[in-house]
Design a protein around this nucleic acid. Structure first.
Lengths: 362, 362
DNA sequence: TTTTAGCACTCTTTTCAGTTGAGTGCTAAA
DNA sequence: TTTAGCACTCAACTGAAAAGAGTGCTAAAA
């Protein structure tokens, strides 16, 4: 059977209505509120066809229809309209721009919070070291007689600092020696192929300073590649609690449970090649009970020396146009921040994106 | 009426049972499982007395009894037994010790996560600048041609770093000038009395460098006292979702809502003088509907140049002995970390605390 | 005087049978 | 091809009845 113009219109109306109200959509309701000028009976016939074609489901015989996974997929890819970015949302994005000059490390965190605020859904970020990231050099700075600051610098100017206490006296000379040793062995190396044993082999160069140098090297290793190889963070769970889909606490628990581990589970649902930057949409899938009623709009971007997946997480009937728009805007903002490092105050909303939608809708 | 030995025993049994099962405790149940060798009728008489004395409540006529706020208070202060720290809990604490040499800034975060894991409740930390905290000095480090690292050092050795991009060329000389200006005006000053206009007045010293120096000064201000004047963080909300008290999503929302603002609301419930270090217990209070079914065990400790409230947050019928024990251990561990800065590997469980319970129970 | 058995009473929770109402599918007429 | 009409389905609601857990009181037992 063909998906006629009329069928598409009806399907889109059903999805819009369902996203809006969260309750199965009936033929009569669609006629009244869905802007379809056909009798309920005709609509019913079309709905029945759409059900047979796999685009609609029926919770039970006397309920209305609910969009299927396929329907959402079609909706996201072809049916949905543009979303007009609101001025509140633009304000949020410009907060991110303002962040530029501050600590780069916090950009991901800030972006995550902005995603939640822009959409009223939850947000997730998954950061991992970029496969090819290279260490540019190390610097040290004496803080006091027993501690120093170790700074690892990446070619893109991103820095990683660790403040470490040695427990033994430390002078500028020691710091210099350590810095030189680290630079001699590690600068130019890729983060991926620095191993702990690698680092420990540096220790051998130090005769009577071994005891001093050992903990420092361990921490240098941490700074370079260590515990934060992958970090998964979630924000805005509160937002989800407002949706009836999550009124059952078990669902929320299941969902949160997915993020508590090292992120392997959630990465399975966010399939991205490290070099592609487009938006993707994961649509809740019955086969994975824990995410069966959850959708995730996500994309992947390099931020500093790490690759980060940004995701917006909502019920399956989430407002996809709002979510995809928000993420697209965010990603543009982040990219322009990364690119125009020398144009300090480029604000997202008027910097001529190649996004043809803006002209029409803003 | 007197609180006889027998009444106390019955009251304690009721509280223990209620904490354990979460359901009103009846006279017959208490006889069978509460280790009371009296007939239900006798127990009923005592319960009736305890109700009149304000220690027990009745949800309705044909339900069992539930402890009142007064009862929990008495329980926490006099009735409850010692809790034996488990080996898993000790392991968690030792993770904190291992953190010592790493970034001090992350100790609070780590401690918060440990509180959740030790108790299976939620945890909260509220950090604020210590009233008297003083800036020791500033340092700068050139990262690349357009960015530098600004480091603020406190007398206790704690550091605060900001990586800032200027958007204009920057050399070691500029960095030196900025550093000197900041040190001349701000070192020795208390964080409290540094104001933005204060900082901006420094700008006047710079003639043609004004434009360069302005954003840097703003960020220096941020680094010193800015946005992080108070930070409120919560962890382990998932844990709470397992308790029937929080099966109603509205309750969870209410609770989370308390932390989303700047923390003023939650600070009202955590009354601590900045210089006292003992444990306190907030016991859910009917008058504050949002916290009516929530208790918080908390204490306040200086960590670096900030004062931090550590709290364990659970249902009103939380396992107070477990929670108070966990927090006590944690606070001891943190204090010993702060004190024995020069004894690198002091592990909590065998370093001779002045806590008489350890001998008996571990 | 204290403890306990017995029993009527209270109030929530569960169960079950109607009843309602939204929505469907099918048929036949427009 | 569209639509009106109608029988049918099924979740959701309603209200009454039954069950169950626990109490308070009284009077007997210890």
């Amino acid at each position: 059977m063909e998906l006629s113009e009329r069928k598409l219109k009806i399907l889109k109306s059903i999805i819009d209505e369902y996203i809006d109200r969260g309750e199965p959509v009936g033929s009569k309701h669609l006629m009244e509120y869905g802007n379809i000028s056909l009798s309920p009976a005709t609509i019913r016939n079309e709905m029945s066809d759409l059900e047979n074609m796999g685009y609609l489901d029926k919770p039970h015989a006397s309920a209305g229809r609910v969009p299927s996974g396929n329907a959402y997929r079609l909706y996201v890819e072809e049916l949905m309209q543009e979303y007009k970015t609101s001025s509140e949302q633009l304000d949020l994005l410009s907060e991110l721009t303002r962040f530029k000059t501050e600590e780069k490390d916090k950009i991901v965190e800030k972006a995550r919070k902005i995603m939640s605020k822009m959409t009223n859904y939850a947000s997730i970020t998954v950061s991992e070291n970029l496969p090819g990231a290279v260490i540019s050099r190390f610097e040290t700075m004496i803080i006091d007689s027993e501690s120093m600051l170790l700074v690892m610098i990446m070619p893109d100017g991103r820095v990683n600092t660790k403040h470490l206490s040695t427990g033994t006296a430390l002078d500028a000379n020691d710091a210099q020696i350590i810095k030189n040793a680290l630079n001699a062995h590690l600068s130019g190396r890729s983060l991926d192929d620095v191993s702990l044993s690698d680092i420990m082999s540096i220790e051998e160069e130090f005769g009577d300073m071994k005891a001093l140098v050992n903990p420092i090297l361990r921490i240098a290793y941490e700074a370079a590649v260590g515990s934060e190889r992958r970090s998964v963070e979630v924000d805005g769970i509160t937002n989800l609690l407002s949706y009836p889909e999550f009124k059952n606490v078990e669902k929320v628990k299941d969902l949160l449970g997915l993020f508590e581990q090292n992120g392997d589970t959630i990465k399975d649902f966010l399939p991205v090649e490290s070099d592609e930057s487009g938006l993707k949409v994961y649509i809740g899938d019955e086969e994975n009970s824990k995410l069966s009623d959850t959708s995730i709009v996500f994309c992947s971007l390099p931020v500093g020396n790490r690759n980060t997946i940004f995701g917006i997480l909502g019920p399956k009937r989430m407002d996809y146009k709002k979510a995809t728009n928000a993420l697209k805007r965010l990603s543009q903002t982040l990219q322009s921040l990364a690119k125009d490092e020398d144009a300090p105050r480029a604000i997202a909303e008027n910097s001529g994106f190649s996004d043809e939608k803006d002209g029409k809708t803003d």
